[in-house]
Amino acid sequence: MSITREPTSVDLEITVDVPVEHAFKVFTEDFDRIKPREHNMLPVEIAETVLEPRAGGRVYDRGVDGSTCQWARVLVVEPPHRLVISWDITPAFQLEPDPARCSEVEFTFTSVGPEQTHVRLEHRHLDRHGAGWQGWRDRAAGDSAWGIYLERFRALAEA
């Protein structure tokens, strides 16, 4: 499924056996069931993940105690073909407050049949996190962010 070519981006694609309108609707309205739960910056478990499907909308996790963590901004919504969100998370698994140091993720939905949609994901401009990555060493002490981040992905990969 990986079609990555650019070193500073991640490209993935998948074909889904549903019409393009349904694919886009599920992706934007059921994002809660799509985003891996293990990826969590809250100190408590995630109750739900919300994607507000409009330009300027937020993408955030809401914890079981009501606390929230906004980790992305909705940049472009063009139903049923295109969705772009920012990725406001540093490689050390902290929120990135500076938009200039955030990457972005574009999802394109292309109809390839009456009941088949091709979805392409491009997570690009990863180099913008460069400075953040340099700093991971400072935050890597003990069991802090980096190790926990890797732990979570390990659990995910083995799930």
């Binding site: 599920v26 992706f27 985003k35 891996p36 990826h39 979805v119 996190h129």
Partner: peptide, 26 residues
């Protein structure tokens, strides 16, 4: 500190998982 490569690998795992969930749900 070939950080970008590590980061890419992690994000690829993350998004692959998300796309598979999406396919199932949709």
């Amino acid at each position: 500190l070939e950080g970008l490569a590590e980061l890419r690998a992690e994000l690829e795992t993350y998004w692959t998982q998300a796309l598979h969930s999406f396919k199932q749900v949709a």
